[in-house]
Design a binder for these strands. Structure first.
Lengths: 205, 205
DNA sequence: ATATTTCTGTGCTGATTGACACATAAATAG
DNA sequence: CTATTTATGTGTCAATCAGCACAGAAATAT
């Protein structure tokens, strides 16, 4: 089935990525349609025809970020043989993601917390779930190690997961505030100490 | 020397506190002058006469928050006999501050990250310094313990301070996202494990 | 070639924004 | 009392916001 009508004059995926960069840097509210027109290189009627509304464009940008940028984190979490290594790798991947050159610093999902839309209930809910989803992923990784006998049976999985998730969010804030990558990278290293009291081969609590 | 002219019809300090609540909840950009008029209970010309501009009002709200609300944190940091206890107390005080009922959740200074003003360079700089100031305060507390012999000489003070500061920011985000206080309070407890490898009476690293 | 469909660029719209002009009210100074 | 000073409330300003109407342009279908 061939396409009918005048073909689109721009690359939709590229335009979406540029919109993401604009939102990532300035947040939803502070990014005006004018800013988007400049960043995406197309006029506003084309934006509305292709994406629906500013809010729908933002929602697509969130999905795009999640699949194209933040995908390294769960991958790193599963990369190492044990949870301690996986979490450290995930935190390192996060620092890498949050401090890449020629790209806004910090985590897009975390940066978008305070930049709520006027009708922001829907997308706000999605963002909140994305943030809290990290804690669940970490909890699953820890549970694996408990089941595998590498962590003690009485390991407080949810509490440790919340703590690691908090560190992750702190890394995002620090990166956005301009902390140097080398300085941020010391954090994953020291975070290892949180889990060692719960290693199965230790008897000290 | 008596006052001249018609006296003010509202309590300036109370109006400032109400403005802080509005900014705390919705951020700078998303809080309109109309919102401020409602929250403060006075009309906009009176706001401008008393505070200058929306930006100046926000700057005063930042100072007010810092002195009237966030003052518990450095106090708690110095309360305990050792750094480990002081930091744990500070994190607990932070959770308390971030999850009080009848008040916006989260840290006002952290919430204000993404809500930058159009001419936000000045106040943004102040906010950034407030955030990074916590790390320095923690570092001072740790250094005290190193000097006092309670922590090893090779304790990585700055790295640990950055890590604790990251946890602090993570707590703020979690509180804003609606995590329950009891759940957040487990984080200060487990954070103790970060410092124990550097206690002087241990020989394991 | 003609009709149909879809995209593009110009330019507008009603609503909302931060900020203030103006006249009036309420206090003190003399 | 009158003059002066400062605060209040009504109403309004230009600027900006998100969104879209409209006409022309560029493709396919028949």
């Amino acid at each position: 089935m061939a396409e009918r009508g005048r073909p689109r004059n721009f690359d939709r995926a590229q335009a979406l990525d540029r919109a993401l960069m604009a939102f990532w840097q300035n947040g939803f509210a502070a990014t005006s349609m004018n800013d988007l027109v400049e960043a995406m290189g197309i006029n506003s009627p084309s934006i509305y025809a292709a994406f629906g509304s500013k809010e729908a464009l933002f929602a697509e940008a969130v999905q795009h970020y999640h699949t194209a940028y933040a995908d390294d984190l769960p991958a790193a979490l599963k990369s190492a043989p044990d949870a301690a290594g996986g979490i450290e790798a995930m935190l390192e991947a996060a620092v890498e993601l949050f401090t890449r050159a020629n790209r806004p610093h910090g985590c897009f999902v975390v940066n978008s917390v305070a930049s709520n839309a006027p009708n922001g209930i829907e997308i706000e809910q999605t963002l909140k779930e994305l943030r809290q989803g990290r804690s669940k992923q970490i909890a699953e990784r820890l549970t694996e190690d408990v089941r595998g006998g590498r962590l003690r049976d009485d390991t407080p999985v949810q509490e440790l997961s919340d703590l690691y998730a908090a560190i992750l969010q702190g890394l995002a804030q620090g990166a956005r505030d301009g902390l140097a990558k080398e300085r941020l990278l010391t954090i994953p290293r020291h975070s290892r100490a949180l889990i060692s009291p719960w290693m199965a081969d230790k008897n000290s609590r």
